[in-house]
Amino acid sequence: ETKSLTLVLHRDSGSLGFNIIGGRPSVDNHDGSSSEGIFVSKIVDSGPAAKEGGLQIHDRIIEVNGRDLSRATHDQAVEAFKTAKEPIVVQVLRR
Rank of each mutant, 00 (worst) to 15 (best):
V8W: 08
G14P: 05
S26R: 09
G66I: 01
I62W: 04
D59N: 01
G54E: 06
F81L: 15
S41Y: 04
V27S: 12
V92C: 04
T73E: 04
S26K: 12
E63A: 15
S15G: 10
P25W: 05
R95F: 06
S35G: 14
E52Q: 10
R71Y: 13
T73R: 05
V27W: 10
I57S: 04
L55N: 00
I38H: 03
T73N: 08
H30S: 12
T73I: 01
V44M: 14
D68C: 05
D75M: 09
L69Y: 02
S34P: 15
L9A: 02
G22A: 15
H10V: 09
L69N: 00
A84P: 01
I57P: 07
E36V: 08
K51G: 14
A72Y: 05
R24S: 13
G47W: 06
T6P: 03
V8Y: 15
E36F: 07
I88R: 00
K42H: 15
T83N: 15
G14W: 03
L5C: 07
L69C: 04
Q91R: 14
G32M: 13
K3Q: 06
V89I: 13
N19G: 07
D12H: 08
I38G: 00
S41W: 04
D12A: 13
L93R: 08
G37Q: 03
I88M: 06
V27R: 13
A72R: 01
I88T: 03
S35C: 14
L69D: 03
E86A: 06
H30E: 14
T2R: 09
K42P: 03
R24I: 11
L93F: 04
K85W: 04
S34D: 15
S4V: 05
R95S: 13
K42G: 10
T83A: 11
S70F: 09
H58L: 07
P25V: 09
D59I: 00
H10T: 14
Q76H: 12
I61E: 00
E63L: 06
F81C: 00
R24V: 09
G23M: 09
E1D: 15
S35F: 08
R11K: 11
A72I: 03
S33E: 13
S13D: 13
G17N: 11
G37M: 03
I21R: 13
G32C: 08
E63Q: 12
I43L: 09
P87W: 02
S46W: 06
E36D: 10
L9M: 13
T73M: 03
G54S: 11
D31I: 09
S4K: 14
D12M: 13
R95Y: 07
V89N: 07
I88A: 03
S13P: 04
S4R: 13
L7R: 04
G47K: 06
A50Y: 07
N19Y: 12
S70Q: 09
S35W: 12
K51P: 06
A84D: 02
L93A: 08
V8G: 03
